[in-house]
Design a protein around this nucleic acid. Structure first.
Lengths: 206, 206
DNA sequence: GCAGTTGCTGACCGATCGGTCAATTACCGT
DNA sequence: ACGGTAATTGACCGATCGGTCAGCAACTGC
């Protein structure tokens, strides 16, 4: 047997390192995380980290690229589509799924997008977020509408990784809580991004 | 004339340093900001910074303490009060004023509260936020209600300092935009924290 | 058996980190 | 004129930073 087929074998070293690095970047911050820390947590030497990734910045790039790529993908799908209400709803759900699946990545470039703006992948992320803002808020949108978008985005990124979590852990990647989180997130974000007027909320939701 | 009375004289050095440090901490992060950077921007030497503040952490403490103190103050005022709707509304407006006035401080310990949790002043901030969460969300609150609180908090902290600002600068401390921001923020946060049912919003607000 | 590749490591490098210290300057009341 | 205090600084310290490099196993194809 040349390679272990399905028995949950040791993941590829570069994947382990990316996972560890992502967690550290999200919690300690990029500049607050040293290559030595990543190596220690992952059980490698610092040299090994730099063998798999050309630099600390390249490691950040590798870690964030999948999330930002998919983000751009679902955003483009929505923009190219006719802007029906159904398409908007589909995008919103895809966006929430993205938030849940890539919560650490999102948190990383939401909360550090300013300080890391000269890192190419983060610049792409910022540009994509700006595109989404333009797509969500029509050019003549009010200050309040823009505020709503920012709060939905930053709030989701913050809450999904807040470790204190105000009572019960939603940061643990427990799939069971995620299925509880998803509809609530869709509801809240939909409410934030929709012009308030008369939201038909069935009284049963409370 | 022993001291310049009102002519906008040079601010006290320690105040200048605090202002510069706060801006750097909020934008580059605490660990991403070096004492040398602060000294350079403020026009002092690194030694001078350490003359006015015993350590980098003491500087962070001095910078954040006023905001967290006032935060605790308005929260206690609300909690001790009978929980009438009027008191809740008053707290909410005081809270929004606090967000606007101390936006950089809030952003700092919201987005770095995890990595700096062993810094005393940040620990106090985290504890106060937790107290507010318990005050806002009754113990039996649903996951969605807790989500709403987190999104309101993290979203406001993020949006008020997001430099991209999705179209128009709300990060510039322009008092004119602040008076435009305040009612919108009160409205959105009130909407997020209020159990949805029937929010009496006069139609004129839109 | 042996060259080549892959994965990994310790030793090392210059730069920068937060922080200490002694010296210097400026200003104060007397 | 003078002693004392406050403010500021450069020189310096050990530690750690991101990164380079040569070497060492282990496995490969031949």
């Amino acid at each position: 047997m040349p390679a272990e087929p399905s028995v949950s074998a040791r993941a590829k070293p570069s994947d382990e390192l990316q996972a560890v690095a992502l967690e550290q970047f999200a919690t300690r911050g990029f500049s607050g995380t040293s290559l030595q820390q990543i190596a220690d947590v992952a059980g490698y030497s610092k040299s090994s980290v730099l063998y798999h990734f050309a630099s600390k910045e390249a490691l950040l790039d590798a870690v964030l690229t999948p999330a930002i790529d998919e983000f751009g993908r679902i955003l483009d799908a929505w923009i190219s589509d006719a802007s029906t209400d159904a398409a908007r709803q589909a995008f919103l759900e895809a966006f929430v799924d993205l938030l849940l699946r890539y919560r650490l990545e999102v948190h990383t470039f939401i909360s550090q997008g300013q300080s890391l703006e000269d890192v190419p992948v983060v610049a792409r992320a910022n540009a994509t977020i700006l595109r989404m803002a333009e797509a969500v808020c029509p050019p003549e949108a009010s200050v309040e509408d823009r505020l709503r978008f920012g709060i939905a985005l930053g709030g989701a990124a913050y809450t999904l990784t807040a470790d204190l979590t105000f009572g019960s852990g939603m940061t643990t990647d427990d799939a069971a809580t995620d299925v509880e989180l998803r509809p609530a997130l869709v509801h809240i974000i939909s409410e934030l991004l929709s012009p308030v007027p008369a939201h038909a909320v069935p009284a049963s939701t409370r």
